[in-house]
Nucleic acid binder design. Structure first.
Lengths: 210, 210
DNA sequence: CAACAGTGGAAATCAAGATCGGCATACAGA
DNA sequence: TCTGTATGCCGATCTTGATTTCCACTGTTG
């Protein structure tokens, strides 16, 4: 009759045992919070462990190091973001509506209350090749999708269309992040609509010269 | 007649004495090179000193620390960048030409062969309040200038025009940086012209609704 | 020739990531 | 119910890398 329910205090200051998967998820949540709050370099493994109510060795039993922990989170977020965008793209076959839906999806991701965008776009680890490769791949995918839309409607070369695609992708990112920092004075719908109109006016029937 | 040219070796491995200002400029040049090559966190004070052919104590006599050294460089670059943009804005009174000139100036700054843009936009120190405050101030100034142009030509509210200004400022930044990484397949003139046209089509006579 | 400003080598300090050995807990099988 | 064993967990420590400072030396200048 000693080992009562695990909720009882087994030993003061010791956290309950968890199955490996569940513990891993918990650690990821904690790491997410700390990275979001402090950025990559500002986040200490100590603090992540403490946030998860766990000691550091536990952290290292699940992840080889800080970088890998961050990369795991980055992969998760980029995957869900990509899914959002792909769904928006596939939601219609009308290019105008596509741009609209995609822009809206972009703003939605930025507005998510887990602040995943901070981890993705404001980590101070952009110089790491693994990180920049992932971000570059993501941006390339998004920008190319826009470039295809542009190419359909214009006479531009592939290179030129791609440049414009990047430009609009960047516009979406920067403007959405700015919008968020204004404490959402404008409604999400209003803001994303404005940017969509700006983008669509810019590219639709874009003339080859002048 | 003893103090010969300082280029003579006073003592092997010892650098010639320099007036304080000149030494400072030399240190800034060296720091710039190292920061650009390695990013903020990747840059070691050792390496900066070595690049300047000087010992670390000298470095610390001119700058209290690594952060201040970086901030000094950031201030310099932002000031010269601002000057570039202001000149472009004042080069004409026609708003269309203004946007054109400004976009061109943006690409020129990114293309400068000292790679100052890396130090400004790709430093991994964006979470530092001093740094983000400076970047935010710079972006605000630039975006507000664009917003004024927009407000002149449209019926949009101040908030809405500012959001669009940010959007275009972000577009300039992201597209110029992308363009640079394509090894300048497109000529600077061609690329900046494309982006300018995209921007101007987007904002000129922007309708209040739909 | 004497004070002085500037310099470099080397070492103190410090923060943060990573690890080691042992203890506690749950569960399986007798 | 009892006991063995594998698994999860922790305190304490090690290690590394970078910033910062100390001190003796050297050339310069009045």
């Amino acid at each position: 009759m000693q080992q009562l329910s695990p909720a009882q205090s087994p030993t003061p200051g010791r956290s309950a045992r968890l199955p490996r998967d569940e513990r891993r998820r918990q650690l990821l949540r904690a790491a997410h919070d700390v990275f979001v709050a402090n950025g990559y370099h500002g986040a200490a493994m100590d603090e992540i462990a403490e946030t998860a109510h766990v000691s550091k060795p536990v952290l290292y039993q699940h992840f080889p190091g800080k970088r890998e922990l961050y990369l795991a989170l980055l992969d998760n977020h980029l995957a869900s973001f990509t899914e959002l965008l792909v769904d928006a793209l596939n939601s219609t076959t009308d290019n105008k509506q596509r741009v609209h839906a995609t822009m809206h999806a972009y703003f939605q991701f930025i507005a998510k209350d887990d602040q995943a965008h901070r981890l993705v776009f404001e980590s101070d680890l952009n110089n790491d090749p693994e990180v920049s490769a992932r971000l570059e791949a993501f941006n390339a995918k998004y920008a190319d999708a826009i470039a295809r839309v542009i190419a359909e409607d214009t006479q531009l070369s592939h290179e030129e269309a791609t440049l414009l695609g990047r430009a609009l992708a960047g516009m979406a990112q920067i403007s959405a992040r700015y919008w968020l920092e204004t404490d959402k004075n404008l409604d999400l719908e209003v803001a994303s609509e404005l940017i969509y109109r700006l983008a669509w006016r810019g590219i639709s029937r874009f003339p080859k010269e002048t």
